Simulated scan of single mutants.
Amino acid sequence: MATGVARADDVTLRLPAPTGPHHVGVTALHLVDEHRADPWPDEVGAPRHLVATVHYPSRDVRDRPVAPHLTPAVAAVLPHFHQPLPATGVAWGATLTHSRTDAPALPGRRPVVLYSPGLADPRALGTTTAEELASRGYVVVSVDHPGETMAVDVPGRPAPRLFALPGDPSTDPRLYRDVIATRLADTDLVLDRLERWAAGGNPDADGRALPADLGRSLDLRRVGLYGQGLGGTIAAEAMHEDTGRRVDAAANLEGFLDYHPERPGQDGELLPVARHGVDRPLLLLGTEGFQDDRYRRAWSAVLAHGCARQHVIADANHWALTDHAAVVPQLHAAGLVDDAGRDALVGPIDPAVSVPTVRRHVVSFFDRHLR
Rank of each mutant, 00 (worst) to 15 (best):
P21K: 10
L31H: 09
L31Q: 08
P39C: 10
E43Y: 05
V44G: 07
L50R: 12
L50S: 01
S58P: 03
D63C: 04
Q83C: 11
T97N: 06
P104D: 09
A105K: 10
A105D: 03
R110K: 10
Y115C: 07
L133P: 05
S135T: 02
S135P: 06
R136G: 03
V140Q: 04
V140P: 02
S142T: 14
T149H: 02
V154W: 04
P166L: 11
R183G: 01
A185Y: 02
D188I: 00
L191I: 15
W197F: 15
G201S: 07
A205K: 05
L220E: 11
G224S: 02
T233D: 01
A236W: 03
A238P: 00
L253N: 05
L257A: 03
L257I: 11
E262V: 14
E262I: 12
G277T: 02
V278M: 06
L284S: 10
T287S: 11
Q291N: 07
Y295I: 12
R296V: 10
H305C: 13
C307D: 15
Q310W: 11
A314E: 15
N317W: 01
A325P: 04
P348S: 06
I349P: 01
D350K: 08
S354F: 00
P356E: 09
H361C: 05
V363M: 02
S364L: 01
F365H: 06
F366M: 12
